[in-house]
């Protein structure tokens, strides 16, 4: 059996010699990771949202300027892990620099570090926020796709049924939606099947973009699909 080959990897594109390619890759990576990085920075360093936002902005700007991601080696870790380590290094340096200016503030980082949960749970937090961000992007893209193709109703059904899944009996929910949208049940299920297929495709396409190779893609896909917890 063969699996889809990685079509385009922004992780690889980020260190491309081609400026346009590099710029596009950075856009993709920033879109996928901006939110999780910002939330992670706020939690780990106990920062208010505005400071976390500034640091995140600074991190991506520095990474672009200094081409940080060119040193990423897929054989050593997932890109997500690599990125988190880069963020930690960047924020630590920034805080050290700020401490030098203010004097006497060096202990803050250590105290905060001691108080927060173990690094593994922080990693889980970063992963969960990354999943949230991936899903949010995919839902937005699905909505755009539905609008473009005149399938607004498919998106509305998806949003009502799949986004707000309350674990009720599926058949009863289909009937309820059919009544609410004045559609036959078969059309409801057909619309939902289409929207779900597109949602899966979008998520996996985005995932291919932000992973370096097929191996990393498969690992992350396993994680997103909830089957393996590597």
């Amino acid at each position: 059996m063969s699996f889809p080959v990685t079509r385009y990897s922004a992780v690889r594109g980020a260190s491309s010699a081609d400026r346009g390619e590099r710029s596009r890759a950075w856009d993709v990576l920033a879109a996928a990771y901006w939110q999780p990085v910002c939330k992670y920075v706020a939690l780990k360093w106990r920062l208010d949202p505005a400071d976390a936002k500034d640091l995140t902005q600074g991190f991506f700007a520095a990474a672009i300027e200094k081409d940080h991601f060119a040193s990423y080696d897929p054989s050593k870790a997932r890109f997500r892990t690599f990125l988190r380590v880069c963020v930690d290094g960047y924020v630590a340096n920034e805080r050290k620099a700020a401490t030098r200016v203010k004097r006497g503030g060096a202990s803050v980082c250590v105290e905060v570090d001691d108080r927060i949960a173990a690094s593994s749970s922080l990693e889980d937090y970063f992963r969960d926020e990354w999943v949230r961000s991936m899903f949010a992007m995919a839902v937005e893209e699905l909505q755009r796709l539905c609008d473009d193709r005149g399938k607004t109703i498919a998106y509305r059904l998806f949003a009502r049924y799949d986004l707000e899944d309350e674990g009720r009996d599926p058949e009863a929910n289909y009937r309820m939606l059919a009544a609410e949208f004045a559609l036959p049940v078969t059309q409801v299920t057909n619309h939902l099947a289409w929207a779900r297929r597109e949602f899966r495709r979008i998520v996996l396409d985005r995932l291919r973009e932000i992973t370096a190779d097929n191996e990393e893609f498969e690992k992350e896909a396993q994680l997103l699909l909830g089957i393996c917890s590597n």
């Binding site: 899903f135 839902v139 799949d162 986004l163 899944d165 949602f199 899966r200 997103l224």
Partner: peptide, 19 residues
């Protein structure tokens, strides 16, 4: 960006898992 709740994420995960 759209802000998803934990419940939304769990529901979308179930969508992804469906064969």
């Amino acid at each position: 960006m759209l802000e998803l709740s934990d419940r939304n994420v769990a529901a979308l995960r179930r969508v992804l898992e469906q064969p």
